[in-house]
């Protein structure tokens, strides 16, 4: 009896919620194949079998390692994949997920489909962005086991009533190890994970005006703060906030581009957002061609009005 194996992501013992979407995708594939879903946490973690079961898993395996090691996580995952005769291994396309995915594929001597945004569970053809989202390819794995990582915000947890059957499995030995995790200051979510993102570009005028963006981000809960490449290259904002082809790719429910003209590298990183708002002085800026809603005007005047309206 084969299974779909899904790798959970935990950090310092706590579940990263985005991986529940991969559990849901695993459920859809397993139902098409008539097989079970096994969720594996490669490190010891405080997990609720009811939450993992509700997302779509039949079994929950938690490994014994105390700290994160990508090579150990991959070796543990590959061993479990062989033990349960996995036909498919799914991960989340986060920094850690992207790190582990190619290692599992190498250990299983198969291919992998990275950063997928859709899958046809019957044909196992995955859709994935290439060239930073300027095009999408339909791909399939040429190998015995299918390995794929899934972009956050494109798949859904199953949302059912089920408690996964929990067990503990041994971890493999580590080569490289995480010795410290320093959380970035502030309550704001990372731009790659936020369900709402507000980004600033040259039209913000100066780094001193960023408090206007932050004010809007403060009045909408769980909003991440982003920036265009020009802003990051000028040193106004850190690279961790850069949205675009050489920064982060985002696909939030709502993306607000403020004073961003819409260079092709930027559009590549955010054009799969569900709703896009553009605020720009230049009515001919390319960003407006991609926007759901646009306001033509000075960002520095509109942002305080926007914050006031949102507070109402």
């Amino acid at each position: 009896m084969s299974s779909v194996l899904v790798i959970l992501e935990t950090r310092q013992g706590e579940l990263r919620p985005s991986c529940l979407e991969a559990v849901g995708a695993a459920r859809v594939i397993a139902d098409a194949k008539g097989c079970a879903v096994v969720a594996l946490a490669p490190e010891s973690a405080n997990l609720d079998a009811a939450v993992i079961g509700a997302a779509g898993a039949d079994q929950l395996m938690v490994a014994t390692a105390e700290v994160h090691s990508a090579d150990a996580a991959a070796a543990t995952a590959a061993r479990v994949a062989r033990e349960i005769s996995a036909n498919t291994v799914l991960l989340t396309a986060t920094v850690r997920g992207r790190d582990i995915t190619p290692r599992i594929a190498a250990l299983l001597d198969t291919g992998f489909a990275p950063d997928c945004t859709a899958v046809d569970a019957n044909t196992m053809v995955f859709t994935r962005p290439i060239c930073g989202g300027k095009a999408f390819s339909n791909v399939r794995i040429n190998g015995d086991v299918v390995v794929a990582s899934l972009r956050p915000n494109f798949f859904n947890a199953a949302g059912r009533e089920h408690t996964a059957e929990a067990s503990e499995v041994p971890s493999e030995a580590a080569k490289a190890q995480v010795i410290e995790v320093a959380a970035q200051s502030g309550e704001r979510p990372d731009v790659a994970e936020a369900s709402i993102v507000i980004s600033g570009g040259r039209g913000m005028g100066s780094p001193d005006n960023w408090h206007l963006l932050e004010k809007v981000a403060d009045v909408i809960p769980a909003t991440g703060l982003g920036a265009s490449r020009a802003i990051v290259d000028s040193g106004w904002r850190p690279h961790s906030e850069q949205v675009g082809q050489t920064g982060k790719t985002v696909s939030p429910e709502l993306y607000i581009a403020v004073g961003i003209s819409g260079a092709i590298q930027h559009l590549a990183g955010m054009s799969s957002s569900k709703v896009i708002v553009a605020i720009n002085k230049d009515a001919d800026a390319p960003i407006f061609k991609h926007a759901t809603y646009g306001i033509v005007g000075d960002a520095l005047e509109i942002l305080p009005e926007l914050a006031a309206e949102l507070e109402k």
């Binding site: 950090r11 920094v95 490289a176 010795i179």
Partner: peptide, 12 residues
Amino acid sequence: RGVEGAVETITA
């Protein structure tokens, strides 16, 4: 390296 919302220190 930066991960979502944190910086990890890794040794090898």
